[in-house]
Amino acid sequence: MSKVNNILLAGVGGQGILLASEVISEVMLMAGLDVKKNEIHGMSQRGGSVVSHVRYGEKVYSSIIPEGEVDILFSFEVLETCRYLPLLRKNGRVVVNDWKIAPPSVALGKQAYPDNLIESIRLQFPATTVVSGLDLALEAGNSKAVNTVLLGALSNILDFDRELWLTALRKMIPERLLEVNLKAFDFGCQVK
């Protein structure tokens, strides 16, 4: 594997994106690969648009994904997916949570949340997996397990042992929340 693989996580501050990128990076490290991840803390996290870059391969230099070289856009919110679509490669893949969170201008009634975004994403990138993350997380028993559901769905399209994912989750998630999260991960794995 000489090529560097690039996953861009996108969503809204508070959705658990940083933990998700942590888990992915841990899986890559355990698989014996070089890995770098990058994100911004501080002001941009206060409910704003958030991205996290994860890159892995034999040797990774830049922790920022070169523009236009995203292999997988792994997105926690519909609108945020569209914001970062131009950074995807031509034949790139999308994993998108079907959750819609109103940005301030929409919440204030000044702008509409655009319609038919998922259809438009599919049209541009046929390799798109849509996940009902919040529904599945609630079914697993905790609305905050959305990120773990999504990780399950992501794990389907990456070629790494399931055991690595489970080990990473066990390492990153507090004991008392582990059971719900492992269940949520399995729900995600079942999304096709």
Binding site: R46, G47, G48, L79, E80, C82, R83, Y113
Partner: peptide, 11 residues
């Protein structure tokens, strides 16, 4: 402009 911006906000 048709993609509404998402600036940070107080919690």
């Amino acid at each position: 402009a048709d993609l509404p911006q998402r600036p940070p906000n107080m919690c």
